Computed example of a mutant assay.
Amino acid sequence: MSPAPEDATPERLRAIPSRLLAGAAAAADRLVAERLAAEGARKWHFAALAALAETGPVSQAELSRRTGIYRSDLVAVLNELADAGFLARDPDPVDRRRNVITLTPSGRARLHRLDTLVDAAQQDLLAPLTPHQRAELTALLARLTSYHRPAHEADHG
Rank of each mutant, 00 (worst) to 15 (best):
L87E: 04
P128E: 07
I16H: 02
A151I: 15
T104I: 05
T9H: 09
L111V: 02
D90A: 14
A135S: 06
P57K: 01
V118P: 06
L36H: 04
D73F: 12
S2C: 07
G56A: 05
H152S: 05
R42L: 00
A28W: 06
R12F: 13
L144M: 12
E6K: 15
R66Q: 13
L141C: 11
H152Y: 09
A84V: 03
D73M: 07
A88L: 13
P131F: 06
D115Q: 04
F46I: 01
R35H: 06
M1Y: 12
E80N: 13
A38K: 14
L78M: 09
H152A: 07
L63V: 02
A25R: 15
A27L: 12
G23Y: 13
A76D: 11
A51V: 01
S106V: 13
A120M: 05
R98D: 03
E54A: 11
E11S: 02
D95G: 06
I16Y: 05
A38Q: 13
I101K: 00
A82H: 04
T145H: 15
R110M: 09
L114P: 00
T138Q: 06
L78F: 07
D73N: 15
L13V: 05
A27E: 12
P128T: 06
R12A: 15
A25G: 13
L36C: 07
P5T: 12
E136W: 14
P128K: 10
R98G: 01
K43D: 11
V77T: 09
E153K: 09
A50V: 08
D90K: 14
H156L: 10
A127E: 07
D83G: 03
E11W: 07
I101C: 02
S72V: 13
L13T: 04
Q123F: 04
R65C: 00
G23T: 12
A28N: 08
A53S: 14
L114R: 03
A28T: 05
G40A: 01
S146V: 08
A139S: 11
P93E: 06
E153N: 01
L36I: 03
R96P: 15
T130F: 06
A26P: 01
A151G: 11
A154V: 15
L49K: 12
P128A: 08
Q133F: 02
A76V: 11
A51D: 00
P93V: 06
P128Q: 09
P57G: 03
E39I: 02
V118F: 01
L137Q: 12
A24P: 12
L129A: 08
S146G: 14
A47L: 07
R110C: 08
T130G: 05
Y70H: 10
V100E: 14
L78S: 03
D155V: 12
D83Y: 04
R143Y: 11
M1Q: 12
A82T: 05
D92L: 10
I69K: 00
A154Q: 15
P131S: 04
V94H: 05
A154F: 15
R149E: 12
P3I: 14
L21C: 06
R66S: 05
A76M: 10
R12T: 14
Q60G: 14
V58H: 04
D83R: 10
A142R: 15
L111D: 00
S146M: 10
P10H: 08
R110A: 13
L141Q: 10
L114I: 02
P10K: 02
W44V: 05
D115H: 03
A37K: 01
P5S: 11
A4P: 00
A22W: 10
A51G: 01
